[in-house]
Design a protein around this nucleic acid. Structure first.
Length: 949
DNA sequence: CATCACACTTAGAACTGGATAC
DNA sequence: GTATCCAGTTCTAAGTGTGATG
């Protein structure tokens, strides 16, 4: 329906000069009729900003927001601000200081070697209201978004503007055309050069659409009206499952006993000679390493001919089903209305699923509870309790006894001895051994998720309408195998027959089934370290790199052939298309701008029966708000219902476009890009460069950003410092991609602990300082820097700290006394009487009395043998320790809600890491875990220290 | 087209086990 | 030795993107 409407309205969008006038009046004057929209928008924004501010947790973030909030309130300020910009018209927008904070971005910073220039740090604001992620994501400022940094930026954070960050060097050939072009100036030449065949540009297009006051009104053309679309209710997705598998499926009933995998090895073509050589070379080494050597180095092999055929022979054992349900002990029963229920195994199992989650958030969630209870009632209807009790209310269900039983079981498991645990693990490994590897063309390859997903309650993320639904136990009858024609058909480890067996060599999955909750397909693939995954992973990065491969283009501006990178051309094109008269093109260009600059996902349409999350193409009216003069505020839930909240300064044209896309009659709930789908967008991108799609930009920008940020590595720092630089770069990428993690439950606690540690250090330093001043009062003047009191050192803390220290000291004394006595007893000697201990305790108390007195008088008698030099030395050491701890604390705080793993695993070309490790001589295992190294063997093989993305 | 089915990548939560603190 | 914490790993949900289908 949505799409039907879209096509119905798919008429060319003829811009008249009218648009500009509205746009203009919004920007220049906030008054009278034309301003109605703007005014409400502005106030709305203001409210948002205020709310955001109120919920913010730390002052740093408030500092970011406050100025804008203030100025947004007073339109006249905005007007003036905007006008003032005309004075620096020739300055690229991206480099204009924002709110006076972006001072680091000087006018001249653009063209010279930007790599070494510090870059104003992106602001970050978490909406501290919850410890769950939902943080307001940070956006990198201008130059970080891509090689030719266009003017996307987020307000600079004043506090951290001093933090150095490298800037990306703008590629020379694109710089002038995009970044360098003054905002307000229009270049007719560039519009002529527009390569779009679709657009038939009128000669003065650009002039008409410039922000000049002469632009006329928008409303005259029908087509200009944005499509206000109703949200349609698609028919509920059918989950009827078992359609006969379409291609090449052969139902096979032979239940031939499984041959050991090794027997099928002869089917494959093992390169015997090669193996032999390896074996000889590594003869001395252990068997395990020999095995490693056998690994197929696909990146050294010649490319296979037909890309669609993935294998010739494929042998594996299918999926491993979990053990059948083990009923609870007789005494463990849930209660209903206080009455213990004796449930049949079938319903008991389902009750157990919920009971196990009793103390998680899921169990409190209304949707989750409702869905669970619906399914629980259904199974109870089929398998009712012995007591013949009708269960009608979840509130009356008491799963506590079951929950506690599970807890006890967990404890038991924990309490097992090492041997017991080891034995258990061995048994498990033995059971799983046949499934761990598959044979692909005779090569041993690790399988991935070969364990059939056990039954349970569906844990949908965010506001998933189906969360809590019972996910049924899988049987062999649910599962379709994909396996070599000559391979033995494995026998399921539980009774039953496979749903089917097929031999499709164009796909890489080993098993497939349809899950009952959402009717979605599930697959068993090979593990991440397999050659199939490796090859496509490498191909992904190569595709992204292709974006910066230069190609010869006919440049109309200069009437010659020029070298240009794909990405530069694409950026140039979409920048031009931002002004296209064809609405669809203009929307596409604007969307592309966001995808490129903000690393948004494509945003396919989603169904009613899924969580309401969006990506770029599916952004709706309410997800984007505008703030003069050129700020776009994104606030929406993306993949996994992760909040994306950024305030971004954009090119004026983008700002204007959004205003148009949001114009009447569009309202809340309508698509922002009503004439754009991921399909059309990708089709366009594919024309720009074969194989290009929206997601490539995420890969590209992530890897590119990483490469740029790595340039901040201290060349002669310690390994730890280098790794810190690496992690900082990693974090920048994670922030770019909005990768979040839940703040750990006891984060605040552990941070507070660290804080106390710092303060304990400061306390020590304070004592040293006082000693110094007592020793030589002149030092107070000589070293005025030491005269200041420690910052967060109040009496309250000191008292508490001293009490703790005293308690510890006394404890230690007691233990020492006891120990001594035990020893004396063993040696049959006389024990020390209690009075000895008491005497020691008394001494300790006296010592701490002195400390308390010192605290009050701020005078500390120098400890014996203490000299001025020694004190100064110790103070300096203390300074180092304190600042190191403070830095570490800050780092932890900054990373608390950022997940670094996802970008490392999926977005950052591993060759960058390998090259960096070699260049800076950091052991790779400090950067890549074992699994990551297994995933990226190809990167280690091909990237030397000079490798560049 | 528009929709669906399919196959594959990307994602945070949950779990685990070893290191570290106590 | 035991508790706690955290990095690494596993699990599976939730995306992307394309080709077939009606």
């Amino acid at each position: 329906m949505r799409t039907a409407l879209r096509s119905f309205h798919r008429l060319h969008f003829q811009f008249t000069s009218d648009i500009g006038r509205i746009a203009h009046s919004h920007i220049y004057r906030i008054s009278t009729t034309a301003a109605a929209l703007t005014t409400t928008t502005t106030f709305h924004l203001h409210r948002n900003a205020t709310r955001a501010k109120n919920t913010m947790s730390n002052s740093q973030e408030m500092a970011v927001t406050a100025p804008t909030t203030g100025s947004a309130r007073v339109p006249s300020v905005k007007v003036r601000e905007y006008r003032e910009e005309s004075s620096d018209e020739d300055m690229p927008l991206a480099k204009k200081p924002v709110n006076g904070n972006g001072a680091k971005r000087g006018v001249g910073s653009r063209s010279s070697s930007e790599d070494d220039k510090p870059l104003a740090k992106k602001p970050r604001a978490s909406n501290g209201s919850t410890n769950k992620k939902k943080r307001v994501a940070e956006s990198d400022s201008d130059s970080d978004a891509g090689p030719s940094s266009p003017p996307v930026k987020v307000k600079a954070e004043p506090k951290s503007s001093s933090k150095p960050k490298s800037k990306r060097p703008p590629p020379s050939d694109s710089d002038d055309s995009e970044d360098g072009r003054p905002l307000a100036k229009t270049t007719n030449g560039s519009s002529k050069s527009k390569p779009k065949p679709k657009a038939k540009p009128k000669p003065q297009t650009d002039d008409e659409e410039s922000l000049s006051p002469s632009e006329s009104d928008l409303s005259s053309s029908e087509d200009e009206k944005p499509l206000a679309k109703k949200k349609t209710v698609p028919a509920p997705r059918k989950s009827n499952g078992s359609v006969a598998p379409k291609k090449k499926v052969k139902q096979e009933s032979e239940s031939e006993d499984e041959k050991p995998l090794a027997s099928a090895k002869k089917n494959g073509k093992v390169n015997g000679k090669q193996k032999e050589e390896k074996v000889v070379a590594k003869r001395e080494k252990k068997v395990k390493e020999e095995e490693d050597e056998e690994k197929f180095k696909w990146w050294e092999a010649e490319a296979q001919g037909d890309g669609s055929v993935k294998w010739n022979t494929l042998v594996h054992n299918g999926v491993l089903f979990p053990p059948p349900y083990i009923p609870l002990p007789k005494g463990v029963k849930m209660k209903y209305d206080g009455v213990p229920l004796t449930l049949p195994h079938e319903s008991e199992e389902v009750a157990g699923f919920f009971a196990a989650m009793l103390e998680t958030d899921h169990a409190q969630d209304a949707t989750f509870r409702a869905n669970f209870f619906r399914d629980f009632k259904a199974i109870l209807a089929e398998f009712p309790p012995k007591e013949n009790v009708k269960v009608t209310s979840l509130e009356k269900c008491d799963f506590k006894p079951m929950f506690e039983h599970f807890e006890r079981e967990k404890e038991k498991k924990k309490a097992m001895t090492r041997e017991e645990k080891k034995k258990l693990k061995e048994e498990k490994d033995k059971l799983e051994a046949p499934y761990v590897y598959a044979l692909v063309d005779g090569r041993k390859e690790k399988a991935g998720n070969f364990r059939a997903e056990p039954p349970g309650l569906f844990r949908g993320r965010g506001e998933h309408p189906r969360k809590g639904t019972l996910k049924k136990r899988l049987r062999p009858e649910d599962i379709l195998l994909n396996i070599g024609k000559d391979a033995p058909i494995p026998k399921p480890n539980i009774p039953g027959e496979w749903k089917g067996v097929q031999h499709d060599s164009t796909v890489t999955w080993l098993a497939h089934w349809k899950e009952n909750v959402n009717g979605q397909a599930k697959y068993v693939f090979l593990a991440a370290g397999s050659s199939w995954k490796g090859q496509s992973d490498r191909a992904k990065f190569e595709k992204a790199r292709e974006l910066i491969v230069s190609l010869a283009v006919h440049n109309v501006d200069y009437g010659c052939l020029c070298e240009q990178k794909h990405v530069d051309k694409i950026r140039k094109d979409y920048t031009a298309d931002l002004k296209s008269k064809i609405m669809a093109d203009r929307q596409r260009a604007t969307a592309l701008y966001f995808i490129d600059r903000l690393a948004l996902r494509a945003g396919n349409e989603k169904g009613e029966d899924e969580a309401d999350t969006v990506g770029c193409c599916s952004l709706r009216y309410e997800h984007v708000t505008l703030e003069l003069p050129n700020k776009v505020i994104f606030d929406f839930l993306g993949k996994d219902s992760m909040r994306f909240h950024q305030e971004v300064e954009v090119e004026q044209q983008v700002f204007k476009n959004i205003k148009i896309f949001k114009a009447e009659p569009k309202k809340k709930g309508d698509d922002l890009f009503d004439r754009l789908t991921t399909t059309t967008l990708n089709k366009y991108l594919n024309e720009q460069m074969p194989g290009l799609s929206a997601k490539v930009f995420r890969t590209y920008n992530a890897s590119w950003t990483f490469q740029q940020q790595l340039k901040n590595t201290p060349k002669d720092g310690t390994i730890a410092e280098k790794i810190a630089a690496y992690n900082t770069a990693n974090r920048d990428v994670a922030i770019l991609c909005n990768h979040q993690k839940t703040v750990s439950k006891n984060f605040a606690e552990s941070l507070a602990k660290m804080g106390d540690k710092v303060r304990a250090l400061k306390y020590q330093r304070m004592k040293l300082r006082y000693q110094l001043f007592t020793l030589d009062p002149k030092m107070k003047k000589k070293r005025a820097d030491l005269a200041d009191d420690e910052s967060d050192m109040d009496d309250d803390f000191m008292e508490r700290h001293e009490a703790e220290l005293q308690e510890k000291a006394m404890d230690a004394a007691r233990k020492k006394w006891e120990k001594e006595n035990v020893k004396l007893e063993e040696e049959k000697e006389e024990k020390k009487p209690k009075s000895v201990l008491d005497e020691r305790l008394k001494e300790i108390k006296a010592e701490f009395k002195v400390l308390a007195k010192e605290r009050k008088t701020k005078k500390v008698e120098p400890r014996k043998n203490m000299t001025e030099e020694k004190l100064l030395e110790q103070i300096a050491k203390m300074d180092d320790r304190i600042s190191a701890a403070v830095v570490q604390m800050g780092d932890r705080d900054k990373t608390k809600d950022v997940a670094l793993g996802t970008s490392k695993i999926n977005y950052i070309d591993p060759r960058l890491t390998v090259a960096w490790a070699r260049k800076y001589e950091v052991p790779l295992e400090k950067l890549f875990s074992k699994t990551l190294r297994e995933k990226f063997p190809w990167a280690e093989a091909e990237a030397d220290a000079d490798w560049v993305f």
